[in-house]
């Protein structure tokens, strides 16, 4: 059951990673590049505002699954990291814990910034909040994958 939840947690995290990365790049593109024809430019010219609510929903879903898995991590994975003296891996998870919490707590502000019609006074906040959410998602995803690599899927 916990292994299935861990896999689902990972799959939702992939969707979240894709959505927030796409949005962050699209939000960063200068207006005069919108008609560029390269693959990368087209990748960035997606409608960034369309990702606001899906990112919030995915983030909360991933967070809830992570919160359910957390006690198993403390009982099964953390003792292993301590036995192997993997201090950096332990610290990376501690940061993942804080980044998840701060990420979910800033979501109301993030969602408000992306709410239509977009307010021009929040252009800067919108862009930076999106990159902050993207940073937390990338960190959490990479650390999660590293820990699965160390311990394996069996929880």
């Amino acid at each position: 059951m916990m292994t299935a939840l861990l896999i689902l947690h990972g799959l939702f995290a992939v969707a979240l990673l894709g959505a927030v990365t796409h949005q962050a790049l699209a939000a960063s593109v200068p207006r005069n590049e919108r008609r560029a024809r390269s693959f990368f430019s087209r990748f960035r010219t997606t409608d960034a505002s369309a990702y606001g609510t899906p990112v919030v929903v995915l983030f909360v879903a991933v967070m809830i699954m992570g919160a359910v898995l957390y006690p198993r991590f403390r009982l099964v994975v953390r003792p292993l990291l301590q036995d192997l003296d993997l201090r950096a891996a332990n610290g990376a998870f501690e940061l993942k814990e804080h980044f998840s919490a701060l990420g979910v707590l800033l979501l109301p502000a993030y969602w408000a910034c992306w709410k239509q019609p977009l307010e021009r006074s929040y252009d800067g906040a919108r862009l930076w909040l999106t990159w902050i959410v993207a940073l937390t998602v990338w960190w959490n995803f990479i650390v999660g994958q590293l820990l699965v690599s160390i311990r394996g899927l069996a929880l």
Binding site: F99, L102, W128, I132, L135
Partner: peptide
Amino acid sequence: SPELAWLVPAVALLAAL
């Protein structure tokens, strides 16, 4: 200031780091 909306979370992330 609208800038506080991202500055406060950014400082909180740095503090955690």
